[in-house]
Simulated assay, not measured.
Amino acid sequence: MEEIEVIFYIEGLGNDKKVLESAIRQTAEGLKNEKGVKVKYVRVEDVLENEDEDILKYSGVIEAQIAGDLASLVRLTLKYSPAIVEVLRPGKLEVDSKELMKILGEISLFMGKLMQQFGGLAVYPKLDDVPVPRIGYEREEIEELIVEDRNILYRFVIEVFGENEEGIKETMAKALSLEGCRINKLVVQGQTEDGKFKGLLAAELLSTFETMFQLTGKYAPVAISIIEPEVVDITANELQNTLTDLGGFVNELVTRPVKRQIMEKKNTEFKLNP
């Protein structure tokens, strides 16, 4: 697989300067010792104090230039959750769909474990007024979307829960449309237990590379397979957006306990000082 060169910008936050400095040093050392990639440099910025913050009042940044294949860089993104990923080269790369499916499987497994611990990621506004999207496309339309719009055709299976089968199908069709997908097929199967429906939703979707990765990160599908094309081309801009999104998803989940503490503290202050 082609070598990709990136810069990770990893942000650390904390309420104790010495503890944060130690954590940042350990993270930097971990990056320097990563196997399977070339670490060009790791630069640690000074920890700064934000006087306007009471809980996470200290922040620090690590900048690291790394080169490796796509699979390795995705693993590092999931491990270190950089706030920003900048892709330096190449301007465009081609990845075999089978390799891409392996990477998507790793993302799904990793994110699924985090969601079991911290909760889900897929949140939408009320969908009542959102029109039900079209489901089903002609072969000529699919080919045009793949060739002209650089869409990917893939199958996507997730676990679903709700009041009833039809309600889940309609809600998920709207949600997937909002995510930027065109839906070729959508099937829900399962059973109702104690008044609640539980089952699987299988969808055949058309979307961009970025959307496909975002869906994998948000939903941690139990299965995902790319149908077409056999080789997926990815631009540097698409890749850096995708890796930055993945880092953001991980960060959103692992920082939830701290954010919860901040909100509880603010609510307590509000009650004590009306």
Rank of each mutant, 00 (worst) to 15 (best):
E140S: 10
T235S: 11
V258D: 04
M172T: 06
F161N: 14
R155A: 09
D128S: 11
S72E: 15
F213A: 03
S177I: 02
K185W: 05
F197E: 11
V6E: 01
V6F: 01
V157C: 07
K102T: 10
G36L: 04
P133A: 12
P82W: 01
G195E: 09
L272A: 15
A23D: 14
L70A: 04
M111E: 07
I135C: 05
Y154I: 04
G190E: 11
A223I: 02
C181V: 07
K57Q: 06
M212E: 04
E86T: 13
I103P: 09
T211R: 13
K196H: 10
K40R: 13
L176D: 05
V47G: 01
E140V: 09
E63P: 10
M172V: 08
Y41T: 05
F8A: 01
S81I: 00
L13Y: 15
I55W: 02
F118C: 07
G248T: 05
E179T: 07
E5W: 03
Q116L: 14
E45W: 02
G120E: 10
N267Y: 07
L13K: 14
V85Q: 00
V19P: 06
F249C: 03
E2F: 07
A236I: 03
N50L: 14
L253K: 10
T77I: 09
I226L: 03
Y9C: 03
I84D: 01
A223H: 11
Y9E: 11
I183S: 03
I142T: 06
L13P: 09
G248W: 00
E63H: 04
T171K: 15
D46W: 10
E53N: 14
S22L: 12
P274H: 10
K113N: 12
L145P: 00
E165R: 14
A220H: 09
F197W: 11
E148T: 10
L78N: 04
K92T: 12
K92N: 07
R155E: 15
Y137L: 13
V254L: 08
E228M: 08
E34M: 03
Q189G: 11
T242G: 03
L13C: 04
K174C: 06
I55A: 01
T171R: 15
E159R: 15
T216E: 11
V231I: 14
E5N: 07
K271W: 00
R260D: 09
Y124G: 08
L100H: 10
V42N: 00
Q240F: 06
F110T: 10
